[in-house]
Each structure stands twice: as C-alpha cells, then as structure tokens.
C-alpha cells in the first residue's frame, strides 16, 4: 500500500473518530439544554488538537515503517488521484454550504448554520480522503 493511501486511511479514521465524538457531545449537550447547544470554543479546540495529534502520530508511525516512501513526492498517477478526489470534495463542500445557507434562511438559527457549515467542511474532507482510497484501490 503506498504511503499516501495509508495517510488517507489515517485521516479518514481520525476525522470519523474525532468528528463523531464532537457531534455526540453536541447532541448530548443539546438534549440536556432542551435546545441546540451553542458552538463552544473549548470543544472545538479539543477537537482540533485531538485531530492534529492523531494525524501526527499516525503519520509518524507509517513514516517509521517506510521512510523512503514518506519522503517521496506524489507521482503523476497519484497527482491525478488527488486532483480527482479534490474535485469531488469541492462539489461536496459547495453543496454543503448552499444547503447550510438555505437552512439559515428557513430557520434564522446561527448555531445551526455554524454546525451545518462545520459538518460540510468535515464531510467534504472525509469524501476527499475516501475518494483517494477508492481511486488508489481501483485505478
């Protein structure tokens, strides 16, 4: 498995894990409050730090097992894979932002707008890494 595919697996797993936990906390808080919980800076900081730590440790581990591959730039096929995955990711975030804006126009709920845009960003990034994995395995 090429280094960049391993990297995509790490990022997909890290994003799914940390984002799942983040939104689970938001749902739990919202249930306690009886309304949608506001976005909390400390929670976002914890989420971001956890994601960075998992990504750095994960990449260090795979780089230790294949140091030569870790330093190698993307080759021509890998560049195309990343471009195509980025294309799909761009479509997803575009659709997510449009959906979020429409949601705001119907609800005028700023908290919901924040979560919708944040979720769009996360989903588009997951789609990018997932597309990379699929393309690495099928093309």
């Amino acid at each position: 498995m090429p280094f960049h595919e391993k990297s995509a697996w790490i990022m997909t797993t890290a994003l799914l894990g940390t984002s799942g936990m983040y939104f689970a906390v938001i749902v739990s808080l919202s249930n306690k409050l009886g309304q949608l919980a506001p976005p909390l800076l400390p929670l976002i900081v914890i989420y971001t730090v956890a994601l960075i730590v998992i990504a750095v440790v994960g990449h260090l581990l795979i780089a230790l097992f294949s140091p030569k591959d870790a330093n190698a730039p993307l080759d021509e096929r890998e560049r195309l894979i990343h471009q195509r995955a980025g294309h799909w990711s761009g479509l997803v975030i575009g659709a997510g932002v449009i959906f979020s804006l429409a949601l705001y126009l119907f609800t005028y709920n700023g908290h919901l707008l924040f979560y919708a845009v944040f979720a769009s960003l996360i989903v588009s990034t997951i789609v990018e890494y997932a597309c990379q994995i699929v393309l690495y395995r099928t093309r």
Binding site: D75, E76, R77, E78, R139
Partner: peptide
C-alpha cells in the same frame, strides 16, 4: 522510471495511461 510500484502495476494492467515522459 521515477514512479511508485503501484503506478507500474496500474500501467501493466491497463488501468492507467502514463504520461508521454514516463
């Protein structure tokens, strides 16, 4: 050639067309 082993495999299996340079 300066590509990954996976790219050579993809070219051999006709899943990828290399650039003219490659």
């Amino acid at each position: 050639v300066g590509v990954t082993r996976q790219t050579i495999i993809a070219i051999e299996q006709n899943r990828y067309s290399p650039s003219l340079e490659t």
